[in-house]
Amino acid sequence: MLLHTVNKSPFEKGSLDTCLRLAKQGSTILLIEDAVYAAMQGTVIESKISEAMKRYSVYALQSDLKARGLDEDRLLNGIKVVDYGGFVDLVAEHDTVQSWF
């Protein structure tokens, strides 16, 4: 299985949509940089992300959440937060990384 990373805001670019269209069911998706905004509660894409979490495990990078002032208690239910060490573990667990930017 691929590890998918996405780094663009879902409100500005279609990278996350394309990732969600093409990632195989059961894949892991890691939100980094501006893509971490997709992990928040109360956005217009909340239902889309919640739906996606039925098919994928979705992670968000802690340092990018912090950098943007996003509190972990306001993340959507089911989003897993990883630090840089966790990022490295995810990469190591997968053969290939698909970087959607």
């Binding site: 691929l2 269209r21 093409l22 195989k24 290939t96 930017f101």
Partner: peptide, 17 residues
């Protein structure tokens, strides 16, 4: 199709966007 492309991507060693 989207599904066929998904499968093809899964078979790759390296994917560059």
């Amino acid at each position: 199709s989207t599904a066929e492309l998904t499968e093809l991507m899964e078979q790759q060693d390296v994917i560059l966007n």
